[in-house]
Design a protein around this nucleic acid. Structure first.
Lengths: 200, 200, 200, 200
DNA sequence: CATGAATGAGTTTTCATTCAT
DNA sequence: GATGAATGAAAACTCATTCAT
């Protein structure tokens, strides 16, 4: 123990136990999410995050031992939220045909990505590959399961392929910030394209 | 550096006039491209780039005044290459139907993105003022022009929407490193989906 | 490699190759040694070390990737110096009796510790136990070998015990800063005590 | 803290008057002592100390206004204990010869240092203004007085020198953790050396 | 008395960039 | 053209200490 030197920062990234603590954490993650979206992960500084949340830098480190841990916490929270939405969706799409499922999925993904912009911003970051890989695999599994229930059933393997494709399709219009008309057109085009493909 | 922020990154302050100089620059951009793909733009250091190219850090700065200028030079070179390929493609697709054009475009984009991985890595950097935006607009224009020649003609506005969509579609399978079978399946699925959509 | 994140700071703690570089390093280690002695390892800041050496903080990190590495480099240099002196001493003490050896050793250690005060200051630091253990073992071995040559020979095991004891004896008077008379008296007392012990 | 530097560390701002309070303080000093020995004064954090004692950080500051005050309280307690032992010893060694006194002193010091490891750890901290110096002077005085009673009397000044030397001698074997055989041998060697010296 | 969330000054460390040779 | 030692602003992170509850 003498030579421990604890390279892991701040041994105490405790989950907040008081109500105020949870509000603090919420403000910090909101601030971080917004900045990550606006300027990207690397260009955002911890000092900035704390300042925008009206907290001191030390407070930020009280809850998140590193910048990476903060990003991951946000990503994990968003991923859980998405996962829950997909679970709910599954109950509603039993027995539907693939095109209808795709349409419902589009709705869910569009809403999620719009309200959780940090998810997209943090998803493709380098580093900590293992964890993110697992997360993606889980998401793929959920979406594949969605399509696997389609009636009539899809050809073998197509559910897995759609699980890769559909979430990426949804990111395309969302990247078109400030071009609202084009964005809506593209979204509609994608929706139509997918529907045709699944009906054909 | 603090007061330098304003300097517009002009690529190649002195374009190398000697043969050796051009080789130097090629080695440097190759090194930088590889590192940007491997670790991302921010995580790559100028020292690393020079070292991998077997050059001194001062030599790197001889040709590229800032890290951004280096990235931009690489991006510009790649973009020119892509532009040229799209120009060539245009001559070959006059009078074809949209599905055939899409198929040909898939081929060109797939080949390009595979051999120019840095393009993807550098294209969506945050803090994207002006230049990159213009570049993307140019590319969109080229692809839209491609589809505008289709016979029979596409509905109004679809060429523009496809110009946004198709390049992003091609990035989906390319992200599936290490899952070759799935990757090929996804690529085929996308190709088929697009073809059906354009024929329908 | 993508997830490398290189926790080890500054990949380039290169040994200086130019003459000026070696002078720089010497100035930095001298500055650090003095401060470590004056205020202790923990209380000394890297900024202070660089400033006293007339260098920028970045220059310090150019040669020493961490504060610990700096301390260790100093310790290693001092230890090598001591080792060399003990080697020289050994050639001069062949065939002497133990008391004479002890006396000569006292001289060498006293001179060394006086001119290398950082050695004492850094020797008992926590952390990196393995390396320091080895260093101490080496020193013990050298001193034990010195006494092992004594004529007449010492009882079994005594050389090893003396190798532990004698260096610590020498540190006693050196701790008496600012009490010159007492210091000299203590040194003489120790010398006499050891001599009697070895003659008895 | 920056402007606090001047505040003379007064031990025990409010000495605990309740039974529970005294237990609290005991737990806190025990925790601190253990950590100071294990990791050194600087590397030990106040939070850690409180945590190991099962107390809140605020509680720790309730009894000790600064980290230095805490260290000093521990040191003072240990020093008082040692002082008391030396007082007792003095009553028992009246009229003994110096060698016998030294032997008895060895016993007392050995026992004390073994059970009060924090004393050694805190005694030689750098930046040692005033208080610790006084404490050492007091100890020296007590030990010198011990030897001053020796029968036959010692040469002038030797009692003072022994007061410096003997406590340091005892620390030598105690540093040999995990080498029990060598440790015992060294202790015996020192005892013998000192006895001979004082008899000679 | 007791708590533990909050603070922010102070440290270590990084890396794009410069410039004397 | 080429070099690489040197720079220092800026970022991440720590921890003694405070204070509202």
């Amino acid at each position: 123990m003498a030579s421990e030197k604890a390279r892991a920062p701040t041994a105490n990234p405790r989950a907040p136990q008081q109500k105020r603590g949870r509000e603090r954490v919420a403000a910090l993650t909101a601030s971080a999410s917004a900045l990550f979206v606006e300027k990207g992960f690397e260009a955002t500084t911890m000092t900035e995050i704390a300042a925008r949340a009206g907290a001191a830098i030390g407070t930020l480190y009280l809850f998140f031992p590193t910048k990476e841990a903060l990003a991951q916490a946000i990503l994990a929270e968003n991923a859980e939220d998405l996962s829950a939405r997909l679970d709910v969706l599954r109950e509603r799409t039993g027995g539907l045909n693939a095109a209808a499922i795709a349409d419902a999925l589009f709705g869910v993904l569009g809403d999620f990505l719009t309200t959780h912009a940090a998810y997209s911003a943090l998803l493709d970051l380098p580093g900590d590959e293992g964890w993110r890989r697992k997360m993606r695999a889980h998401r793929r599994g959920q979406i594949a399961a969605l399509f696997a229930q389609a009636e009539p059933p899809l050809p073998a393997g197509q559910a897995e392929r759609l699980a890769v494709i559909v979430p990426q399709l949804m990111r395309i219009p969302l990247a078109l910030v400030g071009e609202k008309r084009l964005r809506d057109g593209v979204l509609e085009e994608l929706r139509l394209m997918l529907a045709r493909h699944l009906e054909g």
